[in-house]
């Protein structure tokens, strides 16, 4: 690993994860990985501090104070391990925005903060992941850096030389705080669980930033394959994906696609697709849809079910 090239502008990282009914044992395992990655990043000079904040959308707190004390004691490389119970299921976008507000509040109190690493609570970092994620940020135009996932890599295409890609998943992505501020965080009015990251990426690109996929920054995201070797989303994942797909098409000025999807979902025999169509119709009727942007289609891509070209089907 080469820490020398890492950007020195980003020195202080804060890691955000939103929980929902997660297994504390797996979380402890996740923190052990993060602590080691932070240890190497700090000792290698790539970062000055790494802190961790959990936001919990579960009905009741999944982490006890004893658990947090033990995790803090076992994670000497982390500047702090904080935990906020939201008292409600905020979803992904609002959950992260709430944590970003908390980070900004602490920054105003003097806690140094240069970038936020957003990651799923079941994501485990390779030892050199933070170092590798920081490397592209030497370029000030980089607005987002995404890690490669194991065991099932996301199939979206990226430039093999620059790493530039259409959008980045927030399963594990590093975002400079100035970019988050400039874009006013995630669009939690439009998105609950999915596509908030696609939307953020596209808005970042509209603002002139690059979205970088960094294949050498590796994380383990515990996904399983169905019997035929395909990725098998759950019913709720399909529902929120369908709902988000309708809103994405609307927001990025593609009423033709929104209409086609709406018709298809409405006529579907699949209950959660029908429900997504009904929710969209209700939002439309109550004027709760976002104002369309990117009318020239500068960044938005709608290729079948995907938001950019994929290298292969998954």
């Amino acid at each position: 690993m080469n820490a020398k090239k890492a950007n020195h502008n980003i020195r202080h990282l804060r890691v955000h994860s939103v929980l929902y009914g997660n297994d504390p044992e797996r979380i402890e395992q996740t923190v052990a990985h993060l602590n080691r990655a932070a240890d190497l990043a700090i000792s290698g000079g790539a970062a000055a501090s790494v802190s961790l904040t959990y936001g919990d959308s579960s009905p009741s707190p999944v982490l006890s104070s004893d658990f947090l004390d033990r995790v803090r004691a076992n994670s000497p490389a982390l500047r702090s391990v904080d935990y906020v119970h939201f008292d409600g299921n905020l979803g992904s976008a609002k959950g992260h925005n709430t944590l970003i507000d908390d980070a900004e509040s602490k920054a105003r109190e003097g806690v140094e903060l240069d970038a936020i690493l957003i990651m799923n609570p079941d994501v485990m970092l390779a030892p050199d992941t933070l170092i590798e994620l920081l490397r592209p940020t030497s370029n000030p135009r980089v607005g987002m850096v995404e890690a490669r996932q194991l065991p099932i890599e996301h199939p979206k295409e990226y430039d093999r030389s620059s790493g530039e890609t259409s959008w980045a998943t927030t399963a594990c992505a590093l975002i400079p705080i100035k970019v988050l501020r400039e874009l006013n965080g995630f669009d939690n009015e439009s998105f609950f669980l999915y596509c908030d990251d696609v939307d953020f990426s596209w808005r970042a690109r509209l603002a002139g930033y690059q979205v970088i996929y960094q294949p050498s920054a590796v994380v383990f995201h515990d996904k399983r394959l169905s019997k035929n070797g395909q990725w098998a989303p759950t019913a709720s994942e399909q529902y929120y994906s369908a709902e988000a797909a309708l809103i994405m098409a609307h927001k990025y000025s593609r009423p033709d696609i929104a209409e086609k999807l709406f018709k298809s979902f409405s006529e579907s025999d699949t209950p959660h697709l029908k429900r997504a169509a009904a929710e969209y119709a209700e939002r439309k009727a109550s004027n709760r849809l976002p104002t369309p942007i990117d009318p020239e289609g500068r960044v938005a891509e709608f290729l079948g079910d995907h938001y950019t070209k994929h290298r292969y089907a998954l």
Partner: peptide, 18 residues
């Protein structure tokens, strides 16, 4: 694969096949 700002690594280029 070897991007400009990353270390030498690998990338998947095909669907999982049974």
């Amino acid at each position: 694969v070897h991007t400009t700002h990353g270390s030498k690594t690998v990338r998947s280029v095909g669907s999982p096949e049974a």
